[in-house]
Protein backbone atom coordinates (compact mmCIF):
# COMPACT_ATOMS: atom_id res chain seq x y z
CA UNK A 1 0.00 0.00 0.00
CA UNK A 2 2.90 2.31 0.78
CA UNK A 3 5.78 2.34 -1.62
CA UNK A 4 8.98 4.27 -1.33
CA UNK A 5 10.99 4.09 -4.51
CA UNK A 6 14.52 5.37 -5.07
CA UNK A 7 14.35 7.76 -2.11
CA UNK A 8 17.58 9.70 -1.72
CA UNK A 9 18.46 12.55 0.56
CA UNK A 10 21.60 14.62 0.86
CA UNK A 11 22.38 17.42 3.30
CA UNK A 12 24.88 19.35 1.22
CA UNK A 13 27.53 16.81 0.30
CA UNK A 14 26.52 14.41 2.99
CA UNK A 15 24.48 11.62 1.38
CA UNK A 16 22.16 10.49 4.18
CA UNK A 17 19.83 8.24 2.20
CA UNK A 18 20.90 6.40 -0.89
CA UNK A 19 18.29 4.92 -3.20
CA UNK A 20 15.94 3.46 -0.59
CA UNK A 21 13.15 1.15 -1.75
CA UNK A 22 10.56 -0.03 0.72
CA UNK A 23 7.15 -1.64 0.46
CA UNK A 24 4.67 -1.64 3.29
CA UNK A 25 1.40 -3.52 2.98
CA UNK A 26 -1.81 -2.47 4.70
CA UNK A 27 -2.00 -3.26 8.38
CA UNK A 28 1.65 -4.12 8.59
CA UNK A 29 3.97 -3.01 11.38
CA UNK A 30 7.40 -2.23 9.98
CA UNK A 31 10.24 -1.67 12.40
CA UNK A 32 13.36 0.09 11.21
CA UNK A 33 16.55 -0.66 13.13
CA UNK A 34 20.02 0.66 12.72
CA UNK A 35 22.89 2.44 14.43
CA UNK A 36 22.61 6.20 14.95
CA UNK A 37 23.46 8.12 11.82
CA UNK A 38 22.20 5.31 9.61
CA UNK A 39 19.44 7.54 8.19
CA UNK A 40 16.45 5.76 9.70
CA UNK A 41 14.94 8.87 11.25
CA UNK A 42 15.59 10.87 8.09
CA UNK A 43 13.79 8.21 6.06
CA UNK A 44 10.81 8.37 8.37
CA UNK A 45 10.73 12.17 8.18
CA UNK A 46 10.86 11.98 4.39
CA UNK A 47 7.62 9.97 4.38
CA UNK A 48 5.92 12.90 6.10
CA UNK A 49 7.88 15.44 4.07
CA UNK A 50 9.28 17.07 7.20
CA UNK A 51 12.50 16.39 5.35
CA UNK A 52 12.46 16.99 1.64
CA UNK A 53 13.89 13.99 -0.23
CA UNK A 54 16.34 14.96 -2.97
CA UNK A 55 14.94 12.31 -5.23
CA UNK A 56 12.48 9.45 -5.39
CA UNK A 57 8.81 8.71 -5.34
CA UNK A 58 6.33 8.21 -2.51
CA UNK A 59 3.13 6.25 -3.13
CA UNK A 60 0.36 5.81 -0.59
CA UNK A 61 -2.69 3.96 -1.89
CA UNK A 62 -3.66 5.66 -5.13
CA UNK A 63 -1.78 8.81 -4.29
CA UNK A 64 1.67 9.19 -5.72
CA UNK A 65 4.18 12.00 -5.78
CA UNK A 66 7.52 12.64 -7.31
CA UNK A 67 9.80 14.30 -4.77
CA UNK A 68 11.83 16.14 -7.39
CA UNK A 69 8.97 18.39 -8.38
CA UNK A 70 6.74 18.30 -5.34
CA UNK A 71 4.02 20.89 -5.33
CA UNK A 72 2.68 22.46 -2.15
CA UNK A 73 -0.68 20.83 -2.68
CA UNK A 74 0.86 17.38 -2.99
CA UNK A 75 2.91 17.87 0.17
CA UNK A 76 -0.25 18.90 1.98
CA UNK A 77 -2.10 15.82 0.69
CA UNK A 78 0.76 13.55 1.69
CA UNK A 79 0.78 14.97 5.21
CA UNK A 80 -2.92 14.32 5.56
CA UNK A 81 -2.35 10.66 4.77
CA UNK A 82 0.40 10.30 7.34
CA UNK A 83 0.84 11.17 10.99
CA UNK A 84 3.96 11.35 13.09
CA UNK A 85 4.71 10.52 16.70
CA UNK A 86 7.86 12.37 17.71
CA UNK A 87 10.75 11.41 19.94
CA UNK A 88 10.34 14.69 21.84
CA UNK A 89 6.50 14.36 21.82
CA UNK A 90 6.11 17.88 20.36
CA UNK A 91 2.69 18.40 21.84
CA UNK A 92 1.30 21.88 21.27
CA UNK A 93 2.50 23.44 24.50
CA UNK A 94 -0.23 26.05 24.79
CA UNK A 95 -3.05 23.55 24.39
CA UNK A 96 -4.50 20.99 26.78
CA UNK A 97 -4.36 17.28 26.04
CA UNK A 98 -7.89 17.42 24.65
CA UNK A 99 -7.16 20.48 22.51
CA UNK A 100 -4.02 18.83 21.18
CA UNK A 101 -6.04 15.92 19.84
CA UNK A 102 -8.89 18.13 18.62
CA UNK A 103 -6.69 20.59 16.74
CA UNK A 104 -6.19 18.52 13.59
CA UNK A 105 -9.83 17.46 13.53
CA UNK A 106 -11.04 21.05 13.71
CA UNK A 107 -8.53 22.77 11.47
CA UNK A 108 -7.58 20.11 8.96
CA UNK A 109 -10.57 17.77 8.87
CA UNK A 110 -12.98 20.64 9.57
CA UNK A 111 -15.19 18.59 11.85
CA UNK A 112 -17.81 20.36 13.94
CA UNK A 113 -16.61 21.08 17.45
CA UNK A 114 -18.90 18.65 19.27
CA UNK A 115 -17.99 15.78 16.98
CA UNK A 116 -14.26 16.54 17.27
CA UNK A 117 -14.54 16.69 21.02
CA UNK A 118 -16.39 13.39 21.25
CA UNK A 119 -13.85 11.60 19.10
CA UNK A 120 -10.89 13.14 20.92
CA UNK A 121 -12.21 12.14 24.33
CA UNK A 122 -12.75 8.57 23.11
CA UNK A 123 -9.17 8.43 21.83
CA UNK A 124 -7.70 9.82 25.02
CA UNK A 125 -9.65 7.25 26.99
CA UNK A 126 -8.26 4.58 24.72
CA UNK A 127 -4.69 5.59 25.55
CA UNK A 128 -5.62 5.67 29.24
CA UNK A 129 -5.75 9.42 29.72
CA UNK A 130 -9.47 9.94 30.18
CA UNK A 131 -8.79 11.80 33.43
CA UNK A 132 -6.16 14.16 31.99
CA UNK A 133 -8.24 15.93 29.33
CA UNK A 134 -7.62 19.41 30.67
CA UNK A 135 -3.97 19.04 31.60
CA UNK A 136 -1.34 21.00 29.74
CA UNK A 137 1.69 19.10 28.42
CA UNK A 138 3.88 20.66 31.14
CA UNK A 139 1.65 19.00 33.73
CA UNK A 140 2.03 15.52 32.24
CA UNK A 141 4.80 12.96 32.56
CA UNK A 142 6.81 12.00 29.49
CA UNK A 143 4.89 8.78 29.05
CA UNK A 144 1.56 10.57 29.33
CA UNK A 145 2.68 13.21 26.85
CA UNK A 146 3.70 10.56 24.37
CA UNK A 147 0.36 8.82 24.74
CA UNK A 148 -1.37 12.13 23.95
CA UNK A 149 0.93 12.32 20.91
CA UNK A 150 -0.28 8.89 19.83
CA UNK A 151 -3.91 9.89 20.32
CA UNK A 152 -3.28 13.02 18.26
CA UNK A 153 -1.86 10.90 15.45
CA UNK A 154 -4.72 8.39 15.63
CA UNK A 155 -7.34 11.14 15.49
CA UNK A 156 -6.44 12.01 11.94
CA UNK A 157 -7.15 8.46 10.79
CA UNK A 158 -4.07 8.45 8.61
CA UNK A 159 -3.12 5.64 6.23
CA UNK A 160 0.07 5.18 8.18
CA UNK A 161 1.45 6.34 11.52
CA UNK A 162 5.15 7.05 11.72
CA UNK A 163 6.85 6.57 15.07
CA UNK A 164 10.20 8.27 15.46
CA UNK A 165 11.93 6.61 18.43
CA UNK A 166 8.79 7.09 20.52
CA UNK A 167 10.33 5.81 23.75
CA UNK A 168 13.90 7.09 23.50
CA UNK A 169 13.31 10.19 25.58
CA UNK A 170 11.44 8.37 28.33
CA UNK A 171 12.49 7.14 31.74
CA UNK A 172 12.88 3.37 31.61
CA UNK A 173 9.89 2.84 33.87
CA UNK A 174 7.64 4.84 31.53
CA UNK A 175 8.65 2.99 28.37
CA UNK A 176 6.28 0.12 29.10
CA UNK A 177 3.08 2.17 29.17
CA UNK A 178 3.84 3.74 25.80
CA UNK A 179 4.82 0.46 24.18
CA UNK A 180 1.65 -1.12 25.53
CA UNK A 181 -0.43 1.53 23.78
CA UNK A 182 1.47 1.10 20.50
CA UNK A 183 1.04 -2.64 20.76
CA UNK A 184 -2.68 -2.22 21.33
CA UNK A 185 -3.21 -0.08 18.24
CA UNK A 186 -0.98 -2.34 16.17
CA UNK A 187 -3.40 -5.16 16.93
CA UNK A 188 -6.20 -3.06 15.47
CA UNK A 189 -4.59 -3.31 12.09
CA UNK A 190 -3.26 0.23 11.77
CA UNK A 191 -0.32 0.45 9.39
CA UNK A 192 2.77 1.76 11.07
CA UNK A 193 6.44 2.36 10.54
CA UNK A 194 8.42 2.45 13.75
CA UNK A 195 11.99 3.54 14.29
CA UNK A 196 13.07 2.14 17.64
CA UNK A 197 15.83 0.65 19.71
CA UNK A 198 13.44 -1.59 21.65
CA UNK A 199 14.43 -5.01 20.37
CA UNK A 200 11.86 -6.87 22.44
CA UNK A 201 9.13 -4.73 20.97
CA UNK A 202 10.44 -5.25 17.44
CA UNK A 203 10.46 -9.01 17.92
CA UNK A 204 6.93 -9.13 19.35
CA UNK A 205 5.02 -6.61 17.32
CA UNK A 206 6.74 -6.21 13.97
CA UNK A 207 5.65 -8.09 10.87
CA UNK A 208 8.61 -6.81 8.98
CA UNK A 209 12.00 -5.64 10.21
CA UNK A 210 14.34 -3.43 8.22
CA UNK A 211 17.99 -2.98 9.13
CA UNK A 212 19.61 0.21 7.84
CA UNK A 213 23.18 1.37 7.88
CA UNK A 214 25.03 4.13 6.05
CA UNK A 215 21.92 5.36 4.29
CA UNK A 216 20.98 2.06 2.68
CA UNK A 217 18.80 -0.88 3.62
CA UNK A 218 21.24 -3.65 4.49
CA UNK A 219 18.74 -6.38 5.16
CA UNK A 220 15.03 -6.89 5.68
CA UNK A 221 12.73 -9.73 6.58
CA UNK A 222 10.44 -11.12 9.22
CA UNK A 223 11.59 -10.70 12.84
CA UNK A 224 12.53 -14.38 13.02
CA UNK A 225 14.61 -14.18 9.87
CA UNK A 226 16.39 -11.04 10.87
CA UNK A 227 16.95 -11.67 14.56
CA UNK A 228 17.63 -15.41 14.46
CA UNK A 229 19.22 -15.90 11.08
CA UNK A 230 20.74 -12.62 9.90
CA UNK A 231 22.48 -13.03 6.56
CA UNK A 232 24.62 -9.92 6.40
CA UNK A 233 27.75 -9.54 8.48
CA UNK A 234 26.85 -5.93 9.34
CA UNK A 235 23.49 -7.02 10.76
CA UNK A 236 25.11 -9.71 12.89
CA UNK A 237 27.56 -7.19 14.33
CA UNK A 238 24.80 -4.74 15.15
CA UNK A 239 22.58 -7.34 16.82
CA UNK A 240 25.47 -8.60 18.84
CA UNK A 241 26.21 -5.14 20.15
CA UNK A 242 22.57 -4.43 20.95
CA UNK A 243 21.99 -7.76 22.73
CA UNK A 244 25.31 -8.68 24.29
CA UNK A 245 25.65 -12.19 25.60
CA UNK A 246 25.99 -12.40 29.33
CA UNK A 247 29.51 -13.70 29.40
CA UNK A 248 31.01 -11.53 32.06
CA UNK A 249 31.43 -12.25 35.75
CA UNK A 250 31.29 -9.87 38.65
Amino acid sequence: MIQLTHISKAFGRNQVLNDINLNVTKGEVVVILGPSGSGKTTLLRCVNYLEKPSDGEITIGDFSMNCRQARKKEIHQLRQKTAMVFQQYNLFRHKTALENVMEGLLIVKKLPKEEAKKRSIALLEKVGLGTKLDSYPSQLSGGQQQRVGIARALALEPEVILFDEPTSALDPELVGEVLAVIRKIAKEGITMIVVTHEMGFARDVANHVVFMDGGVIVEEGTPTELFNHPKEERTKQFLKRITPELNYSI
Binding site: N48, M84, F86, N90, H94, G104, I107, V108
Partner: peptide, 23 residues
Protein backbone atom coordinates in the same frame (compact mmCIF):
# COMPACT_ATOMS: atom_id res chain seq x y z
CA UNK B 1 9.19 28.63 19.87
CA UNK B 2 10.66 25.19 19.41
CA UNK B 3 10.99 24.00 15.81
CA UNK B 4 9.20 20.81 16.80
CA UNK B 5 5.99 22.79 17.29
CA UNK B 6 5.94 23.76 13.62
CA UNK B 7 6.82 20.23 12.58
CA UNK B 8 4.05 18.79 14.72
CA UNK B 9 1.58 21.20 13.16
CA UNK B 10 2.74 20.18 9.69
CA UNK B 11 2.53 16.53 10.67
CA UNK B 12 -1.15 16.82 11.55
CA UNK B 13 -1.71 18.26 8.10
CA UNK B 14 -1.81 22.00 8.73
CA UNK B 15 -0.55 24.39 6.09
CA UNK B 16 2.25 26.76 7.09
CA UNK B 17 -0.09 29.77 7.49
CA UNK B 18 -2.43 27.68 9.65
CA UNK B 19 0.49 26.43 11.72
CA UNK B 20 1.84 29.95 12.21
CA UNK B 21 -1.53 31.33 13.19
CA UNK B 22 -2.73 28.55 15.46
CA UNK B 23 0.45 27.16 16.97
Amino acid sequence: VDRGQLEAAHSVGMTTPQALRRI
